[in-house]
């Protein structure tokens, strides 16, 4: 390891936001068969911090956030979310998933349920809240993502941007402490990207802890507290947007930035 990367590791340990620790990944490894998808990942995310993860495709960005809510099981190292260490214990996993909301590239709304039912399903079934309460909370969330008039439609009747905003509302309905976004705008038509990013910006400003895998550099520059650059299954560089865009340290970061900016 060179001197620069030592300084980068220090950056990775420095939680942003309120400074209070929300997520801690320590020396996390993940293998898919013979392919190593994550190599010695160290990252701490602070409460109310917004971290954007970027990097070329196949670099392990999605795998990293999917390990945080145990959609993928990491093979070595430790992941601690809000004081709960991820283990094979089913109750532990359920507890973590209740605290962590996730938004997917392909929306993954439930097509057989209306928008309102999509949003209230988990609060009613997992948190066991009464229908009146979940319904009115769902309508508040739909107001917040600006599509209350779609409440009784089915997902297939909505545009991609609207579906993704419903997906955000659905994740928020569980009142999570952390939100994970897995390339939330990559499957959208260009004219719909803004409405989804607007909803995410609003969410960030409300103080939500967020980890966003995205290629939206404009969003990263405006909202991120720190940017994590990944390549070849490892974290190459971590820094504030200012530092990251104007003064990247690593060759691979420079190359990546020259290709996308």
């Amino acid at each position: 390891m060179t001197d620069t990367s030592t300084s980068l590791i220090r950056d990775a340990w420095k939680a942003g936001g309120t400074g209070e620790e929300m997520i801690r990944c320590e020396t996390v490894d993940k293998w898919f068969g013979a392919f190593q998808a994550l190599r010695q990942i160290d990252l701490v995310v602070g409460r109310q911090e917004v971290v954007v993860v970027c990097g070329p495709s196949g670099s392990g960005k999605s795998t990293l956030i999917r390990c945080i809510n145990r959609l993928e099981k990491h093979d070595a190292g430790t992941i601690v979310v809000d004081g709960i260490e991820l283990s094979d214990d089913v109750r532990n996993i359920q507890e973590v998933r209740r605290e962590v909301g996730m938004v997917f590239q392909q929306f993954n709304l439930f097509p057989h349920l209306t928008i309102l039912e999509n949003i209230t399903l988990a609060p009613r079934q997992v948190r066991r809240l009464p229908k009146d309460e979940t319904d009115s909370h769902a309508m508040e969330l739909l107001e917040r993502v600006k599509i209350p008039e779609q409440a009784h439609k089915y997902p297939a009747q909505l545009s991609g941007g609207q579906q993704q905003r419903v997906a955000i509302a659905r994740a928020l309905a569980m009142k999570p402490k952390v939100m994970l976004f897995d390339e939330p705008t990559s499957a959208l038509d260009p004219e719909m990207i803004k409405e989804v990013l607007d909803a995410m910006v609003e969410l960030a400003e409300s103080g939500m802890t967020m980890i966003v895998v995205s290629h939206e550099m404009g969003f990263a520059r405006a909202v991120a507290d720190r940017i994590v650059f990944m390549a070849d299954s490892e974290i190459v560089e971590v820094g504030t947007p200012e530092h990251f865009f104007t003064d990247p340290q690593e060759e691979r970061t420079k190359l990546f930035l020259s290709q996308i900016l």
């Binding site: 959609l71 998933r97 996730m102 392909q106 993954n108 709304l109 439930f110 399903l121 569980m174």
Partner: peptide, 15 residues
């Protein structure tokens, strides 16, 4: 049923 449906349900904490 696509894998995403399972993942979305799991991510919401449904048993």
């Amino acid at each position: 049923i696509p894998k995403g449906q399972y993942e979305a349900a799991q991510a919401l904490g449904l048993p």
